[in-house]
């Protein structure tokens, strides 16, 4: 029988739909009977959603500025080369 600890171990796989049908069924059966695990799964899912939103907002302005400079320089050099060939 699936215990709470076992469920916590495979909780991300359950959230992402990565379990086999059999595993999925035993998680669902356990969740019907266990309030604590229902709260845990709900909170882990909420944490995952939070991460998605937060991580996609992360930017690195300084790195982007440096890359823009190097790309502009390289594009400029390429253009002068091709102009020189004409």
């Amino acid at each position: 029988m699936l215990m709470c600890r076992d469920l916590a171990d495979i909780a991300s796989d359950y959230i992402d739909g990565e379990l086999t049908n059999r595993q999925n069924l035993s998680v669902k059966m356990h969740l019907m009977m266990c309030k604590h695990c229902r709260t845990f799964i709900g909170n882990l899912r909420a944490s995952t959603d939070l991460l998605k939103v937060h991580a996609s907002r992360q930017e690195n302005e300084e790195l982007i500025r440096k890359i823009d400079e190097r790309v502009a320089e390289a594009l400029g050099a390429r253009k002068s080369e091709s102009d020189g060939c004409k």
Partner: peptide
């Protein structure tokens, strides 16, 4: 978890708010 694999210290609160509200 205890030795039987059940919660000893279960999660107490539900995270109610949506990710956008929490952010």
């Amino acid at each position: 978890f205890n030795a039987k694999g059940r919660w000893d210290l279960p999660p107490k609160l539900k995270f109610h708010e949506s990710a956008d509200t929490l952010m």
